[in-house]
Amino acid sequence: MPSPTNDTTAEIQTAKRALQQAIAILSTEARYADALYLSTTTRRISKNKKGAATAA
């Protein structure tokens, strides 16, 4: 098993709380329910003959 770090951000804490509440609702009549929170931020910087470009 990968080693847990067990340090979380406010975003993760909020998502965990919300997902647990949602699971309580979804699981009432279902055999199985799950929930996934995803959030990805990206940045891309490129340099070529056209000039440097940044995207935050």
Partner: peptide, 15 residues
Amino acid sequence: QIQDALFACTLTDKE
């Protein structure tokens, strides 16, 4: 985010 982007703009050198 807008402030960061305006700063990022100063680093680019497009024609």
